[in-house]
Design a binder for these strands. Structure first.
Length: 113
DNA sequence: CGATTGACCGAAG
DNA sequence: CCTTCGGCCAATC
């Protein structure tokens, strides 16, 4: 509880870590929650560094379209899809079915900064 | 310190 | 509908 914001990553990780089981969120939503808003790419960048962090369920983070954009970065070919389906989420054509229903908005669920 | 990039988003052609 | 472009911000080369 002191070096929380060593970098932008830690802040992203913190939000992703709070994503409940069986839920998904988007990069833009996290970015907006952090206040960066227009820098959703930074969130994706942070995920690039999330390799090795088991506390950061990157598979629960998709783009605003509900498409598993980062699935290509996961080991294997369909690990991300399997992880999501393992949580009860249905994936079809690399896309989350009923994304709106599984969507978890940090701004809506988490308290404001 | 300058230039590049990156798992995005949104708009425009 | 699909492709292209710009922006925005931080980390990396």
């Amino acid at each position: 509880m002191k070096d929380n914001h060593e970098g932008f990553f830690e802040r992203v990780y913190e939000v992703v870590r709070q994503v409940p089981y069986g839920r998904v969120t988007s990069y833009g939503a996290i970015a907006r929650y952090l206040g960066t808003g227009r820098s959703a790419r930074l969130v994706g960048w942070a995920m690039n560094s999330c390799h090795g962090l088991d506390d950061v369920p990157a598979h629960r983070v998709v783009n605003r379209n509900g498409v598993l954009t980062g699935k290509h970065h996961f080991p294997g070919s369909r690990l991300m899809e399997q992880l999501l389906e393992n949580e009860g989420i249905v994936i079809r054509d690399d896309q989350v079915v009923d994304f709106n229903r599984h969507y978890w908005d940090p701004m809506r669920e988490l308290p404001p900064l």
